[in-house]
Simulated assay, not measured.
Amino acid sequence: MVLLAAICGACSSGEGATGSGSGSSSSASGQPSSPASAVPSKGVMAAIDGRTTTVATKVDVGGSACGVALVGDTLWVTDNKAAELVRVDAAAGKVLGRYAVSASPCEVEAANGSIWVTTQSGVVDRVDPATGKVTASVTTGDASYETVGALGAVWVSNRNSHSVTRIDPRTNKGVTRTVGEVNAGGFVEEGGFLWVGDDTTGASAILRVDPRTWKSTPVPTGGNRPGYVAATPGRIWVSNVKSGTVAGIDATTLAPVGPPAAAGASPVNLKASTDGAWVWVPDDVGDLVTRIDTTSGKAVERLQVGAGPAVVAPAPDGVWVTHFDDGTVWHLVLV
């Protein structure tokens, strides 16, 4: 598979290649997945906490739905195949517009009054939400993965150059620094530090990076290929993709928060709920989404979704999930 050929940086990627997912035969990266017999059964699980997640809306955006962000009543979704940013009326579940962006877009971040689209074209596109037009294309490292607005800047993880790019939103200028021998994947800020996933099979630690000194500290996760990270106050949550688990880590002591929780065959780009009570985890091989209780660190519900769930975006009443393989985005509501 040729790098940059076909997928978002935030979807499961394997060893330096990208592509689309397809159920049990491959992950969202186009890389062969582990045989089903090699992965413990982690299928649908009814809620055990008295809550239930239901499907409220399904929106067909076409192509390969990858990244997603909810900003007010507007849902922004990237179509990786068409290289477009799609505007969706979240309440009505209707597509309102489609706008051209750079090739291979995925993750979407709202920061500094703009929509930032991470692509694997060596740039992050800054988009005016009023017009949908790209106002700047900022050079990053190779195979940029995820973008985070924090600490007065916009930060980008770059998988293939083992680096992080800091973008000044006032000037749209980026500075890229190497952070360590990791395939920098998922990315989040918590407690004044940057936390960088390592999307490498066989890896077992993420990095905590001090953005003032660029000093990196490895943090073990208790699993294999800790490619994706999310944060709740005082805690970091990590998808151990090859282990099929999500680990909680105390952001101050770096100690584990209980044992890792089962989260499907291939847990990928997880996100915390708006109130921090849950972490939502897509499984791009098993076509599942797992809900994890951030107090106990335990999986409390797992439901079947569409084909190739890639990225989730929290909403006040639940979560939105994109499906790379069928071009849809679903609104899941927790009741």
Rank of each mutant, 00 (worst) to 15 (best):
S163V: 11
S161G: 05
I115N: 02
L151E: 15
A136W: 09
A130N: 12
T147R: 01
S161K: 09
F193E: 10
V154R: 05
S114L: 15
T200F: 11
A110M: 02
K173T: 15
A130Y: 00
A205D: 09
W195I: 07
S121I: 08
V101M: 01
V196I: 14
S121E: 02
D210A: 08
S114W: 00
R170Y: 11
G152A: 06
L151G: 12
T165F: 13
P129T: 08
V123G: 01
E190H: 05
Q120P: 03
S157L: 07
S157Q: 07
T176V: 07
G132P: 11
E189R: 01
V117F: 02
P129K: 00
W195C: 08
V123A: 04
Y99E: 03
G174H: 08
N158C: 14
N112R: 04
V182G: 04
T119V: 06
V108R: 03
S204H: 13
T131N: 07
W116T: 06
G191E: 07
G191V: 06
R177A: 13
S137K: 08
S121W: 01
H162T: 12
V134T: 13
R159A: 15
T200R: 14
V101A: 04
E190Q: 15
G202H: 10
N183C: 00
T176Y: 03
T200I: 12
V138R: 03
V209T: 02
A103C: 00
V127A: 03
I206Q: 05
A150M: 07
V127Q: 07
